[in-house]
Nucleic acid binder design. Sequence first.
RNA 1: GCCCGGGUGGUGAAAUGGCAUACACGCAAGACUUAAAAUCUUGUGACGCAAGUCGUGAGGGUCCGACUCCCUCCCCGGGCACCA
Length: 952
Amino acid sequence: MTKYQPSQFEKKWIETWDKNKIYQSSENDYKEKMYVLDMFPYPSGAGLHVGHPRGYTATDILSRYYRMNNYSVLHPMGWDAFGLPAENAAVKAKKNPMDMVPLNIANFKRQMKMLGFSYDWSREFSTTDPSYYKWTQWLFIQFFKMGLLYKKNTPINYCPKCKTGLAEEEVLANGTHERCGNKIEKKDLPQWLFRITAYADRLLKDLDGLKWPKGILEMQRNWIGRKEGIDITYQIVDNPSSSDFFRSSGFPPDKSGFPSLSCRQAGRKKTDDPSINVSKSTLGEITCFTTRPDTNFGATFIVIALEHPFVASLLNSKIKCQMSKLKKISDYVEKTKTKSQMERESEGRKKTGVFTGFYAVNNLNGRLLPIWISDFVLSGFGTGAVVGVPGHDLRDFEFAKEYDIPIIRVVVGADKDSSDIKQKEQVQEEEGTMINSDFLNGMDIHVAIIKIMDYLEEKGWGKRKVTYHLRDWIFSRQRYWGEPIPMVFCEKCAKNQSQISKVKSQIYNLKIKVSDEVIQSNAGWFPIPEDQLPLELPYVKSYEPGESGESPLAGIDTFVKTTCPNCGGPAKRETDTMPNWAGSCWYFLHFALQNANPKSKTLKPKQTSINNLQHSKQNNLEFNNSDLIRIWDLKFGVSIKKWLPVDWYFGGAEHAVLHLLYSRFWVKALQDLGLLDFPEPFLRLQNVGMVLAEDHHKMSKSLGNVINPDDVVSEYGADSLRMYEMFMAPFSQEIAWSTKTLQGVYRFLSRVWKMYQEYKTLNPKPQILKNETNKKLISKLNKTIKKVTSDILEIKFNTAIASMMEFLNAWEEAIQRHSGTTSDCPESDSGVTLFPRMTKCLSVDNAKKFLKILAPFAPFITEEIWNTVFGETESIHLSNWPEVGEIEEDKEIIIPVQVNGKMRGTIVISSSATKEEVEKKALSSEKIKQYIGGKNYTVIYVSGKILNFVVR
RNA sequence: GCCCGGGUGGUGAAAUGGCAUACACGCAAGACUUAAAAUCUUGUGACGCAAGUCGUGAGGGUCCGACUCCCUCCCCGGGCACCA
C-alpha cells in the first residue's frame, strides 16, 4: 500500500485544474450567484505569510462548497500594489517599484496556486495596471464633477518619515502613523479632500442592514460619531453693569453672576478707556454646541478654542480691548499653539487658559458668563466654543477650579442634594432629575433636554444641530507610487472671477449639495480630458520623496507642464498622487465585470460624447449624467448586475475604519451617480484572526520566528497547512503557530489516505450491505454531513474538521471490530473472499460522500483518491455536495439522572419510554434510591435528555 | 473614562439552559523493532487508597438544573478619547 505523500500529486492537480479551467466563473448560466471575496493583498517582497492562507482557505472552502451546491461562484484574486509599503520597500532595495511589483506578484501567485486556492485567475489584475487605474482616475473625475472633491490648504497629519500627508484614519491613537509607527506632525499643505462627511448619515444608517461582526459595526459607528445637540448663541458684552443689552433683556443684574471683583473693576474703567466702549453689535456673539442643554442653568463660563474667530478679532484689533489683556492673550495663544501633542500629554492635560475680559449673556437667566480661551476646546469639533457647566462636566470642573471661577451649581440632582460641588468626585455627568433650573425643575434630564431645546429654538436663541466625529478624507499623497491625480491647474482661469460659473458647470446636478466654498476652492482646477486617460505614472530614475513636501513628480517638467483644458493656455498638472486606498475602493466592482463581455476589455469610453456634453452644456447647470451611465454600462453594466454586491467578504479587522469605510463611501457615491443600483458593497463580513509565531509574538524577520508556507507545504503538503489553519481555533480568533498540531492534522490525512487505499481493488463493485454496524456508521456519516454543512455556513471550520475526525475514528473502530470475520463478503471469481474489512462498514457510495465533504478543506488528497481509487475522471470539485441521508435514532438511549440537580447516575432505556417508565427505571437503582432517602419528591423529565428528582 | 471582544484541563479548544472538557496536541504505559523514528493500543480535570468531594476569572441572583441568562467586581486583548 502506498504511503500518503502529498508532494507526489499536488503539483499534478494544480496543472490539471489550471488546464481545465474548472474554477472559471461564468455569467452565462442561470444558477444563483455567490460572490466570495478576500481582501486582496499587497504583494510584498517577502511572499505569503502563513497568516494569509487562513483567510484564503476559508473563502476557498466556501467557494468550493457553493460550487458543489450548484451556485455560480465568483472567487477572484488581484493585487493592491500601489502605496507606501511597496514604495518604501523599493526605496530600501534601490529598485523602481514598477520593476519590483511584477516579481512580487508572480511569487504570490505561485504560492496561492501551490495552496490549491480555486481563484478564477482570468480576472486577475493589479491596481497598478494602467488599464485599471485609468478607471480609478475616471472615477476621481466623476467624483470631482459631483462636487465631492475640493482642494484646500489645510493643516494635516504629516509623517516626516514617509514624507507625506495622511488621512485621520491612518493616524493611530498614540499619534503615530499606522504603517511605519513614526510620530505624526501637523503641517500646512494644499490637499485634495474628499467630502465623505456629506455621506456621514447614510454611512451610519446603512450599517444596520449589514451582517458584519458587531465590533466592526461599533467601530464604524464610533468613528462616524454622530451626536445630536444644539447650537446656542450668546451675545457678547464687555461690561456687566452698563450694557445696553443687559438693560433691555429685562433681567435684573444677578450679583452672583459677577465672576470676580477684578472683572467688575475692569468694567468700571469704561469711561477712562475708550477701547472698552464698544457697542454690542460689533462685539457680536458666540455660538456653543452642546449635547446637554438641560444643564444650561448651571452654566458659569464660556471657553473658546485658540482658532476661534473671536480670538482673531481680538488679536487683529477688530475688537478693542485693554493692552495688558491683549498681551496676555497673544502670549497664551502663541505659547500654546507651538505646544506639541506630546508636551500636552506630559503635562497631564492640566487645564490652561486666559480670560478675554469679555462676557456672554445666558439668555435663560441673565447670568454673565466670562469668556475664556483654552486649548482644551478643539477648533475642529462643534463650533470651537463650549459653555462651561462645572457642576456636570469633569473638564469644565477642572477648568473652573484652576481659575477660581466661582459658583459651581448643581442643576441635576439624582440624590436631591443641591449643595454646591467642591470636589471632582461630586461631578455627576449622567442621569437624574432637574433642580435649580426654573421651568425644568423636577423633570428627568432626557425630558428636560427636549423641553429646553424646544424652548431655545422657539426663542431664537438656539438651533438643533447634528455633529460628527468623521472628517473629510485627505486624499493627496506627496509620493511617487500611486495613481496620478488627473487634474490640471490653470492660474489664469483661477484669477478670472467669471470662472466660478465655469466651475459650477463642471458639477453634476445631483442630490449632493455643493457649497460655494467648495466651488470657490476649486477655481482654476479642471479634470484632464477623459480621452487622455490613463494619465500614466512616468517611469523615473529618482522617485524618493522630496524634503519640500512636494511629490517627486513635481520635479518632472514634462509631467507638470500641460495646457489648460478650459482656456488652452499654459497650465500645471497636479503632482500629488492618490492614497493606496483609492485602488481598493472599487476593485471588487472590477472583478465583477472583467469577463462579462470580452470585447469590453478593449473598449474605450465614448469620449466624444462626454466631451461634447461638457462643452455644449457648459452654461447649463442642469447637467445630467445619462451619458455617463451609458459609458459605464457599456463596460460594466451587465456583469455587475449579475455578481454584485459581494456576498462574503473576508479580511483582517485592521481595516475597520479605513478600507471598509472608504469603499462603502465610494459605492454610495456611485449609486448617486446612477452607476450602481445598490447602497452597500459587502453584505457579510468575516474577520480573519491573526496568526502569531509559536512564541506568541508577531512573526518578524528580526525575531527569527517567521514560518514560511513554502517550507510547510514541502514537508506536509498544502492540504495539511489548510486543514491546520482551519482546525486550530475559531476562525476569527488569533492563533499561535503550532507545528505539533499541524502534525496531528497530517496524521489525520494519512489515516484518510490509508482508509481509502483499502477500497482500491473494490471498484467497480459498490457494496451496499445491511447489518447493524453498517447502519450505525451510515447514520453517523449522515450526522457528519449535516454538521459539516451547517458549520461551513456558520464559518465554524474548526468544529467541522473535528466532526470529520470523529467520523474517521468511528469508521476505523467499526473496521477494527469486524476484522477477521468474513461472512457477508463478496467472493471473487476464483472463490476467494474479498475485502473482509471494508465491506462490513461503508459502501463505495458512502465512502465517496465522506470524501466529498472533505474536498473543500483538502482539495488535493480528495481529488487524488477520487481519481486513483474510484477511477473518476471528472474532478471531485465539480461533483455534487452529498444529501444528508437517513439518520437512525438509537433504539436505546442513555438518560442522566439527577437528584436535586446533581448528577447521580445514568440509566439505559428505550428511546420511546414514557416519563413514568424512565422514573421507574431510575428508582430501581439502589444508588438513586439512597440519594432520595425515602423523602417526598417531584420529578422533572425532559424527554430524552434528563431526569431530575427534586427532593424537599 | 467610554465602546467592543475574551477568561473552561499541562496546551489549542468543544459545549448557548440538560452527563463540563468533544476533537486535537502533550504526557504516561504497552505492542511492533536489535534499536530509534513512524505506526498502533490503553490511560490521562484536581484531590483522594476508596466511597466520594471539588471544579468553567471572583462574588451574588434567577431556575428543578447555569460555562451558558441577570447584577456587581477583577484580569487580558482591541478600538475611541480634553468630542462639549
